[in-house]
Design a protein around this nucleic acid. Structure first.
Lengths: 221, 221
DNA sequence: TTAAAATTCAAGAATTCTATTGAATAGCAG
DNA sequence: CTGCTATTCAATAGAATTCTTGAATTTTAA
């Protein structure tokens, strides 16, 4: 009886450890970045604005929980999500938070003030209109992320380079921009620039993670 | 730019807080119990083997994260899951842990040593055979949980009372027992007793939470 | 072999989390 | 009102988590 109770405790302990691995904003940010593409420690630390030692420490913790995997590549160590189920779980966490915490909506409005300034387009309707060739799908994430996987037929112009490469975009088509997903502001900023200069624009809220979870395929490279 | 970074931090903070609310074995146990039925603090403390003050404290934390809701009922306060999405999320957490942590399987074997001693029956196949009337579906959870919701046509005999009420079970039918789900040992114990006394037995691994998430309906009362 | 770069390790201070205890509150029964 | 029960609150000690800093390790390139 005693050991049985202990076994039960241990079981809950294991589940709690997994939750604990996600119970830190920095680690979630790392997971979120890894959901876009595998990355080195240095890159992760830079993107998430933390010290390398700190990023490394958090990555260890994620690794211990089997949420991420690492692989040596020359003198770098490249981390990636251990498993597609991890991405699904992270999205699920976000979904629950969104559903029951009004604070999330408020914080999102702070982070994406332009959230409601542009037309939105659903994944379904996008696929429909892509077939007709009336739309250019624009991926404004950094190049690495585009190459690790992007939506079918998307064109890559990272936000940084957009101003210089405006010439590549046709004026007679609807420009649909997307980025890392609903909690990323890159696409909003791109749309703001494009719309000021006369393009017809819309935002796709989904990123590659959401797209993939919905059962669709990505293009790679 | 500064505030934007801060808004992003805050967003991750909110998600982390939700994960943090689940990052404790006791709280997970409480959630698991609440997935079976709404309960008072006293009952929860007793079932989870912790002090009332401690249970109350953990419940507050869950409430703060909007994972549970409370409601006064006379001199008791009854807690329940805030939302079906919470149950789904908890099952998802378990699923991920199970998938990637071999330790879970080991711990489960300690907690349910009889796990492989009896025939298992799938939910589909159960529904099939229930129609033919060849099966008695036995719910061995405590009465309260049965009344809060149980599988269609299930018969309630709590594990405690099983020995005294063996007479209620027909010898010529297959007895399928279930309890709180795959991480509960009640049904195993019931099957052990029944099988020793000559019944034909099988275990359904699903509990009411899993059954419901799979899109099936429960009977209440 | 040695130097340089990327990452991890180790140790310490600040913070947060947990369990325990005893007191405080809110409803109920007389 | 007065005690009685169920629950929460408040305070505290002990444990775990986080960030920072500087040293140690592993691989590549010279």
């Amino acid at each position: 009886m005693e050991d049985k109770l202990q076994a039960k405790e241990q079981l809950y302990q294991l589940f709690a450890r997994l939750a604990g691995a996600m119970a830190n904003p920095h680690r979630l940010e790392l997971l979120d970045l890894l959901a876009q593409a595998p990355r080195t420690v240095e890159n992760l630390a830079q993107e998430a604005h933390m010290s390398i030692a700190n990023a490394s420490q958090h990555l260890q913790r994620l690794k211990q929980a089997r949420l991420v995997a690492d692989e040596r590549e020359g003198q770098h160590i490249r981390y990636s999500l251990a498993n597609p189920a991890v991405a699904r779980f992270w999205l699920e966490l976000r979904g629950v938070a969104e559903l029951q915490m009004a604070e999330v909506d408020r914080a999102l409005s702070d982070y994406r003030p332009l959230r409601y300034d542009f037309q939105k387009i659903s994944a379904d309707s996008l696929q429909e209109r892509m077939k007709g060739g009336e739309v250019v799908l624009l991926d404004v994430r950094p190049e690495v992320e585009f190459q690790a996987g992007h939506l079918p037929a998307a064109v890559s112009i990272p936000l940084d380079e957009l101003e210089l490469r405006l010439g590549e975009l046709p004026k007679d088509k609807l420009i649909v921009a997307y980025c890392r997903g609903p909690y990323c502001a890159f696409a909003d900023q791109a749309l703001e620039m494009l719309s000021e200069r006369g393009w017809d624009v819309a935002r796709l809220e989904e990123g590659v993670a959401e797209w993939q979870i919905a059962g669709n395929l990505l293009e790679i490279g």
